[in-house]
Design a protein around this nucleic acid. Structure first.
Length: 500
RNA sequence: GUCCCCGUCGUCCAGCGGUUAGGACACCGCCCUUUCACGGCGGUAACACGGGUUCGAAUCCCGUCGGGGACGCCA
């Protein structure tokens, strides 16, 4: 083998359009962006829309918008094209089918006719017996004749990976070193679903190879499936890319960051008035990677020492070092984010500050929508603020006298709010859906419409008098509404803990 | 339950065999100030534990404990 010039660095992010754009996508996106830029490489955006059950049509555009909002751009992607497209997996199904056939032909995979119900039952049994839940290999032992019979009978099937029965797979994680998994602990992963779509594992490996990805920079949660991916590269006779697994962003309780415990939607941060540079800066702080300013820099640039935490994308490009990343999962601390955002706000010129307000929380669109809600409810223009303050305040907390229905206990009320929250999370943000969903929940739980809506009104507006609830929620936005409900629950929980 | 990863103030980072363990957020105090905020100054606060290795361990090795992740026809 001759020494050749190493191939151009190519990295990618592969978000799934299943809901609001996630702060974790921005984090991994930023890291990939920096990695590519530092090596004069290319950054690819690929949409992994192979899960049709969770697919949300509006999600893809929201992902583009959110990534652009924080200041990232990509060389190739569904919106800008590129030489290795299409960049939407749903448009590549034929490619995956062909590749699944290759694996079937070289015995790296097999057809499995087990039903989801069978599998679920088996998993339950294994869990109950404190066994690791794993596919039992029934269909792996099918004879070719049996397979043909099943096929002829028109039985649906999935394609499973035939993980070697013995041995182990070792791969190198660029941050952690070698990691070994015994094949006993690697499941026969489903590669093609019965609907003809590939699973992540197949699509990801095939696409990363076909798109010439050299470095896979993704979250730590993927470590345990990396042996499957490495085995797939081998089965195809391909070379694996390098793997860099980044620490997972965490909730305050250290669990993987989740919408239940933390605002994770980038839409929330935009609509609540976080500045994109501040968010980007904060994300850059997570996991380290930035060299601290030296004593000399602090003196020569006359830096306040705390400015070691404040840096632009350009500075990240210059100083970020992937080998410096610390592996402990960083807690996504909203308090520090807020401080950082405040620093950015204070740095704005008065004109820019005003412009920022006019683009977000005081935009014409927003003000127009709010105005529309209260026009018939005020007698002088000066009363505008009286009914609309909750649209502009970030600190709304109703007293018990307002939110607690007369005949309900605090406990059942809070439980009902949690139900409302869960229901609204799953609902498209249009009036008919919101109203229907709330009413449905009320019927299930035997809450009068009046109690139901008044409770939510109190939480979101802080008052018993407000413009029409559902219309207000629409204007206020889903992300902020849900966050307000979450914070309400949190605060009430704390209060009742104190009482005890 | 099985496997894998991780472990420095409450939180985010620095530390790379010899430091009074450093900075930032938060918190507390003082100053500035008609108020609040900003700003300035100061303070409380951490190497999970136990064994090694070494003249010397936060730093290297092993074990324990703790935290997290994965174990889906989700990604």
């Amino acid at each position: 083998m001759t020494a050749e010039t190493s191939p151009t660095t190519r990295v990618r992010i592969a978000p799934s359009p299943t809901g609001d754009p996630h702060v974790g996508t921005a984090y991994i996106g930023l890291l990939n962006y920096i990695f590519a830029a530092q090596r004069d490489g290319q950054f690819v955006l690929r949409i992994e829309d192979t899960d049709r059950a969770r697919f949300v049509a509006t999600s893809e555009q929201m992902i583009f918008d959110a990534l652009k909002w924080i200041g990232l751009s990509w060389h190739e992607g569904p919106d800008v094209g590129g030489p290795y497209g299409p960049y939407r997996q749903s448009e590549r199904t034929e490619i995956y089918r062909q590749h699944a056939d290759i694996l079937l032909a070289n015995a790296s995979a097999y057809r499995c006719f087990c039903t989801p119900e069978d599998l679920e039952a088996a998993r339950e049994r294994q869990k109950a017996a404190k066994q690791p839940p794993r596919y039992d290999g029934t269909c792996r032992r099918l004879t070719p004749e049996q397979v043909d019979t099943n096929l002829a009978a028109g039985k649906t099937f999935v394609v499973r990976m035939a993980v070697p029965l013995e041995g182990a797979t070792t791969f190198r994680d660029e941050l952690r070193g070698d990691i070994t998994f015994d094949h006993n602990n690697v499941d026969d992963q489903v590669l093609m679903k019965s609907d003809g779509f590939p699973t992540y594992h197949l699509a990801n490996v095939v696409d990363d190879h076909l798109m010439r990805i050299t470095d896979v920079i993704r979250a730590e949660e993927w470590i345990s499936s990396t042996p499957k991916h490495v085995l797939l590269y081998k089965a195809f006779g391909w070379e694996s890319p390098r793997f860099w697994h980044m620490p997972l962003l965490r909730n305050v309780d250290k669990s993987k960051i989740s919408k239940r415990k933390n605002p994770v939607s980038l839409v929330y941060y935009r609509e609540s008035g976080y500045l994109p540079n501040a968010l980007l800066n904060f994300l850059g702080l997570m996991g380290g990677g930035m060299a601290q300013p030296t004593e000399q820099e602090i003196v020569s640039k006359n830096l306040n020492t705390k400015e070691g935490d404040i840096f632009s994308l350009a500075e990240m490009l210059e100083k970020f070092d992937f080998k410096r990343i610390s592996l402990g999962g960083p807690v996504f601390d909203l308090v520090k984010l807020k401080w950082l955002n405040g620093e950015y706000i204070r740095k704005l010129s008065p004109e820019d500050f005003f412009a920022a307000l006019r683009q977000t929380v005081l935009s014409d669109d927003y003000l127009r929508a709010v105005a529309h809600l209260i026009q018939t409810r005020i007698d002088t223009l000066g009363q505008f603020g009286d009914m609309t303050s909750f649209f502009f305040s970030d600190n709304v907390m109703p007293p018990e006298s307002i939110f607690l229905p007369k005949k309900r206990t605090l406990e059942e009320t809070l439980a009902f709010v949690a139900d409302q929250l869960a229901a609204l999370e799953a609902v498209p943000w249009i009036a008919t859906s919101i109203e229907a969903e709330l009413k449905k929940l009320g019927e299930e739980k035997q809450w009068f419409v009046k109690e139901n809506f008044m409770l939510l009104r109190a939480i979101v507006t802080g008052s018993a008098n407000s413009p029409p609830l559902v219309e207000s929620l629409i204007v206020f936005g889903k992300a902020r509404t849900l966050d307000r409900m979450r914070r309400f629950l949190e605060t009430q929980k704390k209060l009742s803990a104190q009482r005890r």
